[in-house]
Amino acid sequence: MTDEQIKQYHKQVDENIVKYGYHSTFVFTGNTPSFCYSTGIYKSFGIPELFISSLPQNLSHELIQNYVHKFKNMDKVPLDIKIDDLTDRFPVYLIEVPIDKLTDYVLSSIRFYEGKNYKYIQLIYLDTNGYFPNNKGYNYDQVILGQFEQ
């Protein structure tokens, strides 16, 4: 990206946060698993930002939107328990992720928060055979950055 493209992208991120309360960024390089993450949720709604690995772009954006809608008025997001109603497609878990594990991923958030406090959680999901990462037979390229125990 050119400097001008980066500047325009940062402007878009900031405008979306003002307009919607957050921005979601999808990254696909072709060499590593894709990922998607939010920026602005922590500041706007007081709940952690969301990181999702290896799901398609539209589904990732839908999950972030559903997450905001479901938890934005709650004091706490439930961690380490199965959530059956974040999407009608499959159950998920939300796990805490230390910020230092995300420095290669969440560049828009790092720029947006500029050293201020913020938190992230990761959405963990089933593989196509219905197994979570800790189940025998799990087979998917989901990058897990936090501690997942089922």
Results as ranks from 00 to 15, higher is better:
H23D: 04
D80M: 05
K70R: 08
K136T: 12
L86F: 05
I83C: 04
I121K: 01
S60K: 06
F28Q: 12
Y9W: 12
K101F: 08
N129K: 15
D104A: 10
K116S: 13
G130C: 12
L59S: 02
Y120M: 06
G115I: 11
I99M: 06
V92G: 07
N31K: 15
N134C: 14
F51E: 05
I47T: 00
E62N: 10
L55F: 07
D127W: 11
S109G: 09
D14K: 14
Y138D: 00
N16Q: 12
N16T: 10
G137P: 02
I52A: 02
V13Y: 03
F45N: 01
L79R: 08
I99D: 02
I95G: 06
K76D: 04
P91M: 05
I124R: 01
K76Q: 09
K136Y: 12
P133E: 02
T128K: 15
I99R: 00
V77T: 06
K19M: 13
I47K: 08
C36E: 04
G21K: 01
K82P: 05
I81L: 10
L102N: 02
E62I: 11
D75V: 12
Q8K: 12
D14A: 15
K136A: 11
G30C: 00
L107N: 07
G30N: 03
Y138C: 06
Q65M: 14
P91Q: 04
I124K: 01
F71Y: 06
E15T: 09
N58D: 10
F35M: 10
Y42C: 00
N139P: 09
N134A: 15
S54D: 10
Q122D: 00
K72T: 14
I6Q: 08
T128D: 14
Q5K: 12
C36H: 00
Y93T: 04
T87D: 03
S44R: 08
Q122H: 07
G46K: 10
H69W: 15
K82D: 04
S34M: 08
T32P: 06
L86K: 01
N31Q: 14
V13C: 07
V68R: 05
Q122S: 03
D104P: 02
T25I: 12
Y20H: 12
Q8S: 10
L126H: 04
T128N: 14
H23S: 00
Y20L: 13
G21Y: 00
V68T: 08
N135H: 09
P133Q: 06
L126C: 09
G130V: 15
N66I: 05
R89C: 08
I41W: 02
Y140R: 06
V13A: 07
T87G: 01
G21C: 02
